[in-house]
Design a protein around this nucleic acid. Structure first.
Lengths: 117, 117
DNA sequence: AAGCAGTTTTCTACATTGTAGAATAGTTTT
DNA sequence: AAAACTATTCTACAATGTAGAAAACTGCTT
């Protein structure tokens, strides 16, 4: 998928982990730095998340303009941190991702497929 | 004491396109062969989907046991086709993927982030 | 100041998943 | 049998996901 700047993304679509990270950033409000995002992700999903995967994903999202980051200066209470926030472009990507998925899920009933293990 | 608070069973988790393909297979009912799945995907998402990506994804899903395929014999009306169906394992993967995502979306409001383009 | 511990970030490497397009094969029509 | 379709397979590469460890920063302790 070669990014073509001249041709606006017809909506490239978010990866599953990218979506999770974006949501976790929103959830952490104005305290969304790497480690905090990771903890939120682990808390909500109940899964183990390596910190490296969070940062690399955040970096990639920033490169695409879906999040921005700013360094806070250390004050008495907390050290300097790189705080992330979701851009309007990021929010739109989330909305679109969800909208498309909802269409695909509409009317789908898993029940008849769920046989016993 | 930042010891591991018991790691829950890790499940691979579906990729975003894998989920879409799985849902499209379910949607096509017992007529879910490659080309048909592709058309359904294009119809619902409004995006262009290459046939190669559908088959390669279907192959990978089959290798993981999330779908099965069977060759139909050509009768008067239709030619021989490779028809796919979602397994119970596949259905559970879908259910789990959705459940986890719903938790992350719970309480998230995109409105305040959606500034004008 | 030097060392240490805890926290946060960066970096590196590799695996898996996503995307594209062409090649191949089978059917139906002319 | 050639052409026009439909369906499947194959190949190659890009993007995204995952893991682990190195480096940087801060406050504490000696």
């Amino acid at each position: 998928m070669t990014a073509n700047p001249s041709k606006p993304p017809e909506s490239a679509g978010l990866g599953s982990f990218e979506e999770q990270v974006l949501l976790a950033v929103i959830r952490t409000g104005d305290d969304g730095y790497g480690m905090r995002v990771r903890r939120e992700l682990e808390r909500v999903t109940g899964r183990n998340i390596t910190i490296g995967s969070v940062y690399i994903t955040l970096d990639r999202l920033e490169a695409k303009g879906l999040v921005t980051s700013a360094r806070t200066s250390a004050d008495g209470d907390s050290p300097s941190r790189r705080v992330f926030s979701v851009t309007s472009t990021g929010a739109r990507a989330l909305a679109e991702t969800r909208a498309t998925r909802d269409k695909l899920w509409a009317g789908v009933n898993l029940q008849p497929l769920l046989r016993d293990v």
